[in-house]
Amino acid sequence: MESAIPAHLETPRTRHKRVPDDYQPPYPSFVARYKPGVSRVVMAYFGVQHRGAVSAAATEALAEISRLFAGEGGPTHCDRAHYVDQAGHANIVSVAYWDDIARFDAWFAPAREAWTGASRDGIGTFIEVLRPAVARHETLFSSLGRPEGVAAIAEGMSGEVQEHAYWGGMRDRIPLSQTDPMSPCGNPELIRDGARLRVKAHDNLCLIRSGQDWSDTEASERKLYLDDVEPVLREGMDFLRDDGLGIGCYANRYMQVLSADGKASEKSYGQSWWRSLAALERWAESHPTHVKIFGAAMKYLSTLGPSAKLRLYHEVTVAAADEQFFEYLNCHPKTGMLAAVETAVA
């Protein structure tokens, strides 16, 4: 049994784990392992927002970001997903990951100008970037063999880890939690730069990407997931999207991953911005919407046992103030972190 925290990031604890040292989790889970020389990673969300059918301008923008990703200094891994937001706008988000900050910085300056530097006919564009120290970040996977998200740029995966299957495991997997409560400080502020709107968030903003992959499931398991689990998950995701601000969730997207040809795949993920890790933990542990999700998932997994082929994963980051960048052009006021400063936008 390994610790989720890599050996080179272990420090004497001043804040204790939620479980004793001899805790044995009831089922296996795994985390991504980066090369020891990787001190920071980059996760960058490039969004296109439009109403109705995909326009020529949206198609052109998507082709442009693909070209930028494929160019010099581009990401090690990227994927693309789609969702319809609370204002009825379709959003297609291309997510890219780097493990080399210098390479990203050289790539990002011209890419930013290309993406949010000029208006496009009838569409909005946005950029949301975190570049956290690896000590501020954790991942978790229910199975091996198919890394998703930021784990796709890791060197590999761990063996079975101890810190999971209990409330507080998410925090205990973040190396910084050994000594720091990671409490938020300050409030989001809006910065206007011509037509561009930037959001300056605050220290210890939290991001979670939590995904599901049912592509390996067979008929009966697929029906059980799509009929009994997915609707409950969607209900919780819709609550966070529409009413999350009251519990510390600035914005939530429930995304369907797109395949290389642009068609919907059998993968989805929720992606949300939170005021703090503590706010995310409170929702996960006690809010009725997540209690219902957890109950549906446990019933599903207890019914199928080890034969379950559904793959689950997540990545969680608690970012310092200087590790964040949010910029929006011609997007509605509830888009991403604009929702945190909506009155100022309006």
Rank of each mutant, 00 (worst) to 15 (best):
F104P: 07
D100V: 09
Q324K: 02
H16A: 15
T11W: 00
A57F: 03
R51F: 10
Q256A: 02
R198A: 10
D21Y: 07
E160V: 15
T125L: 12
G52A: 11
A308N: 10
H290M: 12
E281P: 00
R275L: 06
P36G: 04
Q49I: 09
R33K: 13
R241Y: 01
Y45Q: 08
G74R: 04
P25E: 09
L226R: 12
A279M: 07
A201L: 11
A284V: 14
K292E: 11
E230P: 00
F108G: 00
A96Q: 04
W273K: 02
A133E: 15
A195N: 15
I208H: 05
C331F: 01
G236W: 13
A154Y: 07
A4R: 00
Q24E: 13
V129L: 13
S183Y: 08
A219S: 14
E327P: 01
K292L: 02
L140E: 07
F239C: 09
E113G: 03
E323Q: 14
A201V: 11
Q256W: 12
S94K: 06
D99Q: 15
S183F: 13
R222V: 00
A63C: 01
M182D: 01
R171E: 08
I5C: 03
L140Q: 02
K17L: 10
K200P: 00
F325L: 15
W107T: 01
E327G: 03
P6R: 06
